[in-house]
Design a protein around this nucleic acid. Structure first.
Lengths: 339, 339
DNA sequence: CTGAAAGCGCTTACAG
DNA sequence: CTGAAAGCGCTTACAG
């Protein structure tokens, strides 16, 4: 499981002094080269360049950051109970950060333990943190820090405050699609209220129902898991008249379908079910899942771009992320209302 | 989306000198306190302690690591195309690392891009890296580094080399279970051969088939995704006689079931299908999935514990991780062979 | 355009 | 048991 080191004395990493000695210049000149090559005259530049390459030099970030107060690390906070957390978001974010020259410190958090909270706080106070990207809506303690902070989803909140819903048009499409199939009586299984995306989808659902003159026979809050969808599904099965269910994510949709199945209801024969996210396996379920396709990787990348934009103090608004379109993908789990 | 900092001058983090001044001692004394409290006499200890608490001091890791050459960071390499990578493993690993006082740098990798490889290599050469935990079997370049390295799954390889199979008994249980239902003709959908766990399960499958005097009508390599399971499933549907399929993970099992469904074959009526991993939603599928329950979080934690053990140069073998038992969970997707 | 000096915040010898 | 000195590898002024 472990690969032995090539033994003995670990090869000391070369320093700026080694490079300087080899190039026959002062170490400051090497430092200058690293910062801005054009500040050197061509002949010097060349010497430094070849010495650098020869030694395979890597700067010591600790020393650099100690002296320059520059920061090279971004902390990403992910929920610990991340059975449902889309790893794709983390990937998107990490990719962008690496591309921009930052290292990514991942911190998992559950809201329960004191000690972990404390550890997170002290980490955030550390001097070398450039910024924080939190995928956890209530990431206790992150707010007090003075580094730039992006909480994924807060954008949604802002928009909702302005009367716009980030997920609005997609949710409207779901409801329209179901209404066009003759459905009139709906049920919504929402994500946990702490999450902006959950609040957003619920609000968009309620708005679309009202706008299109339909009926919502109930809303149940889950926790994003299939198990919570299953619990909601049992309730739905015993609620007379529901013919269409809109679930806040695909996991919960799976749970709903299972519960309906156990109550002798078929999907989409008796009840239509629509999810949200378009997980990689949703197309392969039986029935395959009608859902909203989300560019999770793109969203993660967008959040990270925004954070880096703030870290660098660039003026002007962040360019909105170029995401794959958020589209309704119609599959087998939704169908005409049964009479 | 962004929370403004509490404005103005960022509160400078307190240094060891601030603490020393407040406590009325030299900064070395504070440093000693941090390293080993018992080296101070009680009255001094008390003064330092209260000053420390009052200022909410956090050590500057960059400075500490620059001077002491101690390392505080562990790099975790995760596959970029991690649609299927169980985030739970990362969580388990990160939790253990944090608990032990390390920070976790996550690096995503795909094997394609040169620049990313280079970045990974230079990251690994950085002076402040204590060790590397890779969840990617072929994490190009990590081998050259002189820091302790654990590649998740290599342990499996070692055991196989010694004639033992980590996943052996569980795979045997799968085959036994299916054989007890009357199945004789099997098919295996394996994970990518680069992954030790995939090779392991395939070997265990072939061994169990032979040991129990059964027939394997084929083995198809997938890439862990439902889509690859689907492709294999089409092949299975056109292979005469197969009544039981053992898939290397639950995602591929889902794809297999879908393909069989499209070919008019029911599960488990016509064909039984068994997965591996026991994803959170596997119990809620229709049919619910027979699978091997894996303690993914525990495995991630175990790998990290081993790495830290090596980093600290502790003698003796690593205590084997205390995992939840790897159990066969019998659900609806496997049933008696049809005649 | 380049070198000599100072210093980031810590820890590790060295004295007392 | 505690303080004065030195130095980790860098970058940032300051001179030339």
């Amino acid at each position: 499981m472990v690969q032995e080191n090539s033994g003995g004395a670990a090869a000391k990493a070369p320093t700026i002094y080694d490079v300087a000695a080899l190039a026959g210049v002062s170490h400051q000149t090497v430092s200058r080269f690293l910062k801005d090559r054009t500040a050197l005259k061509p002949s010097t530049l060349e010497k430094v360049e070849s010495a650098l390459a020869q030694l395979d030099y890597t700067p010591n970030l600790a020393a650099r950051s100690l002296r320059s107060k520059a920061r090279y690390r971004i902390v990403v906070v992910v929920p610990e109970a991340s059975l449902y957390f889309p790893a794709r978001m983390l990937n998107g974010a990490a990719g962008v950060a690496q591309e921009a020259g930052y290292r990514v410190d991942v911190v998992t958090t559950d809201n329960s333990t004191e000690s972990r909270q404390a550890r997170l706080r002290s980490l955030l106070l550390a001097e070398d943190i450039a910024g924080v990207l939190s995928f956890v809506p209530d990431s206790g303690g992150t707010e007090e820090t003075s580094v730039p902070l992006v909480v994924a989803g807060e954008y949604d909140d802002q928009m909702r405050a302005r009367g716009t819903l980030a997920d609005g048009s997609a949710a409207a499409k779901v409801i329209e699609h179901l209404a066009s199939l003759g459905h009139r009586k709906f049920f919504h299984v929402a994500g946990p209220a702490a999450w902006p995306s959950a609040r957003n989808r619920k609000a968009a659902y309620l708005y679309a129902i009202a706008a299109q003159g339909l009926d919502s026979l109930g809303v149940e809050d889950g926790d994003w898991s299939a198990a919570s969808g299953y619990a909601a599904g049992s309730k739905i099965a015993s609620t007379r008249g529901v013919t269409a269910v809109f679930a806040g994510n695909d996991h919960m949709a799976i749970g709903v379908i299972r519960a309906l199945h156990e109550h002798g209801l078929t999907v989409p024969g008796d009840v239509s079910v629509c999810g949200w996210d378009d997980m990689a396996e949703s197309a392969f379920l039986v029935p395959s899942l009608t859902t909203i396709h989300m560019d999770l990787e793109g969203i993660g990348a967008g959040c990270m771009r925004e954070l880096i934009h703030r870290i660098r103090g660039e003026a002007g608004p962040v360019q909105p992320p170029r995401l794959e379109p958020m589209e309704l993908v119609i599959r087998e789990s939704t169908g005409p209302v049964s009479l």
